[in-house]
């Protein structure tokens, strides 16, 4: 483990969107670069690479994390879900439909991260107030919408899941 043996690559095995993935990665590679470059899952975006903008938010072992603030090697053995997997499984289809109907996205760059954050809120709090929604997504930067439509879409989804009013 010392000297020359301290190599700068490592073999990792993880489950990404339910698929087992084994790769050799440079240890300095963060999770989102790994997902985007190595696995070609380009739905997770990079907006700052310092953990502020939230565009890289993905799910690791069931919780939302900043993909740029986690090394790919740290995800060894983990279950990672990206927007591609969450879309294909239909897990957040109602939320996506609400975003679509309400035009809660414009350029779409923040959207995958925003959806992961919103989904986590809805799982923990089935009846969030608008202020709670705003607080929960306060780490996800959106330059286009002004947030109002996003708050509407999340609120609508929560109401629909509670059986109040139809899904958007």
């Amino acid at each position: 483990m010392d000297g020359a043996s301290m190599d700068r690559v490592r073999d990792v095995t993880l489950w990404v969107n339910g698929e087992r993935v084994s790769r050799r990665v440079a240890v300095r590679t963060h999770l989102v670069d790994f997902l985007r470059v190595e696995l070609e899952l380009t739905g997770s975006h990079l907006g700052c690479e310092q953990g502020v903008c939230g565009a890289c938010t993905v799910r690791v072992d069931g919780v939302a994390v900043r993909g740029c603030l986690m090394l790919a090697v740290q995800a060894d053995g983990a279950r990672v879900e990206t927007i591609e997997g969450l879309s294909d499984s239909g897990a957040i289809a109602d939320l996506q439909a609400a975003f679509h109907a309400r035009n809660a996205l414009q350029c779409g760059y923040c959207t995958p991260g925003m959806l992961v954050s919103a989904a986590e809120l809805l799982a923990a709090n089935p009846a969030p107030t608008r202020d709670e929604i705003r607080a929960h997504i306060s780490g996800n930067y959106c330059r286009c919408t002004g947030y109002h439509a996003i708050v509407d879409a999340i609120e609508t989804t929560a109401a629909a899941r509670r059986g109040e009013g139809g899904a958007a």
């Binding site: 300095r28 690479e49 953990g51 740029c68």
Partner: peptide, 20 residues
């Protein structure tokens, strides 16, 4: 890693070894 990895990405810090 929520501060450390950001400082690494920005090359504000360059340790030889990370001990996870």
């Amino acid at each position: 890693g929520q501060s450390l990895l950001a400082t690494l990405n920005m090359r504000l810090s360059s340790p030889g070894l990370l001990v996870d």
